[in-house]
Design a protein around this nucleic acid. Structure first.
Lengths: 169, 169
DNA sequence: GTCTGCATACTCGGATAAGAGCTGTCCGAGTAGCTTAGG
DNA sequence: CCTAAGCTACTCGGACAGCTCTTATCCGAGTATGCAGAC
């Protein structure tokens, strides 16, 4: 039970995109170069975010990705689910159905006490992630590290200038 | 991000063992037959539980596994960790260290706001699992399905009688 | 009858394959902008 | 000089391998039991 690395990348990339906000799209190459990530694989994650309606993409020159949702309305859970697909689903259906006195017509996810306990834990996890919006994170970072937004913006400006070099990676 | 099937098996098997309690050890074959599980693979999970000090094992004839800890002192988290090993650890260390202004000497797991948010969620999950002991689960099952403990005990008695047949599986 | 030694069968334990999913990579479809030729 | 068509280069998107971890299996080490033989 390990989270994909893509989740980490997606979270930080969404945060960076929320600071850009020039209405300007950022390419996979730029976003990957920021953290020195494999370009093509990050692109795969960005595709997933686009399918989920979190980012919007435009092909061709001057294309790239931009944030397509209000950070206030974008929770960490949205991002995690977009990348991971399904989340750890724990259900005892087959187990109890195959045991003595098992009944295939019963939904054991609802009756099994252990299954319910595991679901409560999973729910607590989801609730915690759903309670933090990207805007919350942004505010917290700005409070702790006031220079971060400006530094990030500046980096991406120079990156645009050096675009040709980045593309060679 | 999917939990091992072994977690589910381990939870139910520990619950069953807590009902047996005759001081008598149950073999992998018996425990596996109860849910019609692959014997050798369940054995692997039981080994992990033994290494974690949750079960105790005795080899040879009349051997098997028995619960080696007070159900009051055994949380669901203990069992999950025993099977899964490590739990979903989310840390942004390498990511931020490789970014602009990254510093290899900084522990970003403590400074990164996103990492902290993810840790809070994981903590909520662990706390929820740690708050349920096996004894709690047992009490709840006995309240909802009073006949279950007796039925389980009875099944394992006949299984002992039919031991030879089970071993052929 | 009782004790001792041995053979037997049984159970766990770790070492060993097969499959699924995550990780990483590459090339094609489509588009914006530049170039160039014509009016 | 202005316009328009074509070309170029750039970017996303999905299809294609490599690798780690989960799933599944098998055989060997060690032990309690039952039996046989001696005292």
């Amino acid at each position: 039970m390990e989270l994909s690395k893509g989740v980490e990348w997606a979270l930080h990339t969404c945060l960076n995109l929320s600071w850009i906000e020039g209405g300007e799209a950022k390419t996979t190459a730029e976003l990957a170069a920021y953290y020195d990530l494999p370009q093509a694989y990050l692109n795969k994650q960005l595709q997933a975010l686009t399918r989920a309606g979190i980012l919007s993409s435009t092909p061709g020159p001057r294309g790239g990705f931009r944030l397509d949702r209000d950070p206030e309305q974008l929770s960490l859970l949205d991002i995690v689910v977009a990348i991971e697909g399904r989340v750890a689903a724990f259900a005892c259906e087959h187990l109890l159905a195959d045991g003595p006195g098992g009944d295939a017509s019963v939904d054991y996810a609802l009756t099994c006490v252990l299954s319910q306990a595991m679901s409560r834990a999973e729910l607590a996890w989801r609730r915690e992630l759903a309670s933090s919006s990207l805007a919350d994170i942004r505010r917290e970072v700005e409070a702790k590290y006031p220079q971060t937004p400006g530094a990030t913006r500046a980096w991406f400006l120079t990156a645009r200038a050096d675009g040709r070099r980045l593309a060679r990676r």
